[in-house]
Amino acid sequence: MIRSTHLPLLVTLGTFVLAYALCAYDYPSMLSTRVVANLLTDNAFLGIAAVGMTFVILSGGIDLSIGSVIAFTGVFLAVILRDTSIHPLAAFMLVLILTTAFGAAMGALIHYLEMPPFIVTLAGMFLARGAAYVLSTESVPITHEFYDVLQGLYWKDPSGGRFRLIGGIMVLTFLVGILVAHRTRFGQNVYALGGGGQTAKLMGLPLASTTIRIYAISGGLAGLSGIVFSLYTSAGYSLATVGVELDAIAAVVIGGTLLTGGYGFVAGTFFGILIMGLIQTYIVFDGTLSSWWTKIVIGGLLFAFIVLQKGLTWATQARRRTATGSAAAS
């Protein structure tokens, strides 16, 4: 059944279909599985991080640290694989534990010190970036046969598209994210928190554990995203992925999630990511447009979506509004 809360998701879906149709009209070859496969591969790390960001934004928060955490993860892996004989899988586990704990710590600060998420995660952003610098200021290449194995894993479509492991990880992350958001108690608590912290508290919601878990998930997924990024680039560089948190926020908003929290869908973020990837691909196909056009189009889209959300909020409120002093006072 179509409900008004689903509208932003439908708009996102519509935008995606429309955008793809336009692209395919200009460049029919964009319909190939090769392009689809690359779309998934190229946006894998961003998509994974955006799942975490969706949870954070649904709860009414924000996480500015993820770009730095991704870079830190990459450098950490590169350095540890260069300097020790630890198996990459063990290194993955280690870095996931680290980043999850880092997120949890930020969540705890936000909850117990009642500090705005913006400030706490801004501090986290500097901290993680700084830690990456401390490990190495140079780009450290990763050469490990296990990496080669992982990078060689793909499923080849008969028509030539290569669906690689990391794209699969992203899709899997989204599927799990959808399940967690909509079908678990924790997921419901995330929405409840976004709907109103005070009310949720009176309803008996475990505020502390929910907040901590949300940021732990965001941190952990940023770690996973970092692993995927290192598989994608075969290197760790402390200056990499600057501003990725903003791309993730953009994807979440284009995906129809309300920035103020409480309304939205993880699946929407998936299409947000695809829309952004599509724009990029179009510009590559075109060849003459400057890559800055990506930013401009995404900016325009963001703006349109925010206006749309505002409009929807107004529409629902106007329907509910009866008499009011606030209307007279405005």
């Binding site: 809360t5 929405y191 409840a192 009310t199």
Partner: peptide
């Protein structure tokens, strides 16, 4: 009144 406006009745 203490319920959440963004959730459904059942939720």
């Amino acid at each position: 009144v203490n319920l959440l406006p963004n959730l459904t009745v059942a939720e």
